[in-house]
Write a protein that binds this DNA or RNA. Structure first.
Length: 138
DNA sequence: GCCAACGTTGGC
DNA sequence: GCCAACGTTGGC
């Protein structure tokens, strides 16, 4: 059974548009233990909601895991076992789901995204995933 | 092992 | 630009 994740990115660093153009990418440079532990749990076929932080502040579309966690060696910190996963572009939402809309939704406002704003990779419940897709695709 | 100081992320 | 919420670092 597929799991559902929300991965955050700063679009000036790596945008969802760039993922669309490249079709797939390695999701790397996660340097937070909690987020890394979630990356390690990702399985091929899991679905990922991509969220743009910064100026955009909205869930922008969907991707899926195509390669499970493998080493992401940090030259400045080679002894720590950071990991990356590969993700494939699926689709843009017809309309991005803004943080405001997420906070306004009684179910979605309980997501870790809202409660723990610094976390860059996190699990989301199936209900949350489905609600986000519904809001994004109308 | 504790905790104060500092750094980072991300929303406002 | 500021600040809240964390995470990390380093002195003790």
């Amino acid at each position: 059974m597929a799991q559902y994740w929300l991965y955050k990115t700063e679009p000036s660093t790596y945008s969802f548009e760039r993922l669309q153009k490249e079709k797939s990418t390695n999701w790397n440079l996660i340097r937070n233990y909690q987020a890394r532990n979630f990356l390690k749990q990702a399985k091929v076929g899991d679905l990922v909601v991509v969220y743009h932080s910064g100026d955009v502040k909205a869930a922008v579309g969907l991707g899926k895991i195509i390669r499970e966690a493998y080493p992401d060696v940090d030259p400045d910190d080679p002894k720590t076992e950071w990991v990356q996963v590969d993700i494939q572009y699926i689709s843009h939402f017809k309309a991005p789901v803004s943080l405001g809309a997420i906070k306004a939704d009684p179910t979605l406002k309980n997501m870790l995204l809202v409660k723990q704003s610094r976390l860059s990779a996190m699990p989301i419940e199936k209900d949350h995933y489905e609600k986000l897709v519904r809001l994004g695709n109308g």
